[in-house]
Amino acid sequence: MEFEGTFTIEEVSPEEVWLSLSDPYMIKQSLPGCQFLTEVEDPDDVDFEELREAEPDEDPPLLPEADPDEVAARGFDEGSHYAALLELKVGAVKPSFRTVVTIDEWDHPVGSASGEGDASGSSFEMDSGMELSETDEGVAIAWHAEADVFGRIAQMGQRVINPVADRVVSRFFSNIEDQLTEVAEEDESSGLRDRIKGMF
């Protein structure tokens, strides 16, 4: 099934959005149900139990508290792989998807990633991408995803899956938006925004 949409965030610059969307910690905290998101060497050999246990109690700070250079340094690189544990409530079931994602392309303002997730009795495969553009209102994030779902979840059909996908995506972007609003507020005092702009 295919999903797409555009989410516009007002009063921010494309660079701020890009930097945030490149930050694995920002993604982890914004993505509903994401238990962890960790870079891995070999996508075919991931021990999720080990990663869960190795997960630190507290994440490093996000923008605006974080140093933009540090955020940029930990940002996504093309060809890198991430493991994530995603707990999603779909209808009456709450599967935990052991997910592995590869960053296929990451070049401002275009990014794409592909991955697959596996839960008991259900799984998915996904290709997704986004492109940022500046508009009169702010920054438009045009995103698209093509997903194949399998098993118990697939059987619930689009009637159940579409609202879940809508919910996840809209919460994700509104979380990002909330965080970026803090960046905008922070900027009143520190000139953070200019610093980020200067990085690109």
Partner: peptide, 14 residues
């Protein structure tokens, strides 16, 4: 079924 052979009408609701 979808193109992967997943049943889309898998309950009495569908």
């Amino acid at each position: 079924y979808d193109e992967n052979g997943q049943l889309l009408t898998g309950s009495m609701q569908d």
